[in-house]
């Protein structure tokens, strides 16, 4: 089976209305469907791996967003489902995010190691 690397970089665009991130969601669905898929979080999407994100409390026109996105838990869910999930170390550091702020089980990859990561997969889906 072809190994797929799903690269996510666009972050927090539509996540409140979707109640999740559409590419994390699709990657999880594809894993459940039997895909051999890994996820690489780069650019702003590295923030999805930060623990303690809290989008609660949104009510608009009296309609509450009762199930706000929990992107850190969604990343943990991917890892728990057996999806190798990576963040780019330089992107984490550039944003002032401490490594201790990241969810357990996330794999750190350096920019210089990305070519090896790409080489280790048969298909790169760069969303």
């Amino acid at each position: 089976m072809a190994k797929i690397l799903s690269v996510v970089e666009r972050a927090y665009h539509g996540t409140l209305e979707e109640q999740d991130d559409t590419i994390l969601w699709m990657s999880h669905i594809l894993k459940n469907a039997g895909a051999d898929i890994s996820v690489l979080l780069r650019s702003n999407a590295v923030n999805y791996a930060v623990k303690g994100q809290d989008a609660s409390g949104v009510t608009i026109g009296g309609i509450p967003l009762s199930n706000p996105p929990k992107l850190d838990e969604d990343v943990e869910g991917l890892i728990g489902a057996g999806v190798d999930t990576y963040v780019v170390a330089e992107d984490v550091e550039q944003r002032g995010i401490g490594r201790g702020e990241l969810v357990d089980g996330i794999k750190m990859v350096g920019v210089s190691e990305l070519a090896d990561l790409f080489d280790g997969h048969d298909a790169i889906w760069h969303w």
């Binding site: 209305e17 109640q19 999880h28 459940n32 608009i60 026109g61 309609i63 509450p64 009762s66 199930n67």
Partner: peptide
């Protein structure tokens, strides 16, 4: 529904943008 979470449409209680806007128009 959300098959990743195994939740129904009712459990997801997804407020669409038009519902939000209808609520605001109601004011």
């Amino acid at each position: 529904p959300n098959p990743v979470k195994g939740t129904t449409a009712e459990e997801e209680d997804h407020p669409t943008t038009s519902r939000f806007i209808a609520g605001l128009l109601g004011t």
